[in-house]
Design a protein around this nucleic acid. Structure first.
Lengths: 171, 171
DNA sequence: TTCGCTATGATTAGCAA
DNA sequence: ATTGCTAATCATAGCGA
């Protein structure tokens, strides 16, 4: 009778050189690992969280999505920075940028002057009751301003809080 | 020669009844699990995250802190809710609460009237240039209002983004 | 890729210290 | 709580399909 297999052989604890062997071993050992984790849960009532990512170059869906998202955000940040070039120090602006900025400032000056003129005209007209419309517009949920009525609500500032929530079991 | 041990015996996959056995088994199997996870990393280049919580009633430091924090927040929410009783439906308020609310509303009415009077007095006085102070106060970083100057900055809304960052290795 | 097989290496239950 | 021992069970490398 011919020996079909030499049976399990010892393996050196280094990264496996053979790629296809590595894939098979990964698959088998991963399931073994999850089984062990599950058993630890059941036998001992421990709480275990386990995440395993495939070794291949082809990252898992979720991770890939995360990375993509990260790159998107970097792009967005760059774009928004490019659109806000005028926030940079004056010395770093190019000549066309400086010219554009100068034109914008002149336009702004005109607008400010116009607005001032408008307000002066309003003030010289017949007096109106502005208090009601301007002050009652502040609250949304409350029809009245409790602070000004002597209350001290002392509201809690919003406080971020995340519960990671490791459930019993393994993932 | 006397047998010192019956050797390894099969165990049922249910929670171990004997507490001290359970502790020993937990300790041994946990180290085994970590070893397996480590080996999966080394052999296959996989990325593994592993967290194990002790089964005992005495929770680990971090978890305990989290729970404490959670309870604190609940307390705080309760307290703030108690301080905002006037936000509850009218039918749910007690008599003293209703009386306090009535007094507060009367006080508020007086304040509103006073404020209206004040504004009317201002408007009837000598005209002042209010445009500069009111319109230039809008920006903090920008000394001028680019929107009104014809620019379209199109700023990105702030967008929360968390990178969990699973590192290579096991924990 | 995943499956079953089998011989063998690795893990661990039960004790004792 | 952790360590060492022993014998038995369990996990899996290597192979073939």
């Amino acid at each position: 009778m011919v020996r079909k297999s030499k049976g399990r052989q010892k393996v050196e604890m280094v990264k496996m050189p053979n790629e296809s062997n590595l894939q098979v071993t990964f698959s088998k050992r991963r399931s073994g690992l999850f089984k062990k984790a599950s058993e630890l849960c059941t036998l001992c009532g421990a709480e275990v969280a386990l995440v395993v990512f495939s070794p291949g170059k082809k990252v898992l869906g979720e991770l890939e999505a995360e990375k993509k998202r990260g790159e998107e955000l970097i792009q967005m940040r760059k774009a928004s920075q490019a659109q806000c070039w005028w926030e940079n120090p004056i010395e770093e602006l190019s000549l066309p940028q400086l010219e554009q900025l100068k034109a914008a400032l002149e336009e702004l000056k005109k607008n400010v002057a116009k607005q001032a003129e408008k307000i002066m005209i309003q003030n010289s007209g017949p007096p109106q009751f502005l208090g009601a419309s301007s002050s009652s517009g502040g609250g949304i949920n409350l029809p009245f301003d409790l602070q000004s009525a002597g209350f001290n609500p002392n509201m809690m500032p919003p406080h971020g809080y995340n519960n990671p929530g490791f459930g019993r079991g393994f993932y």
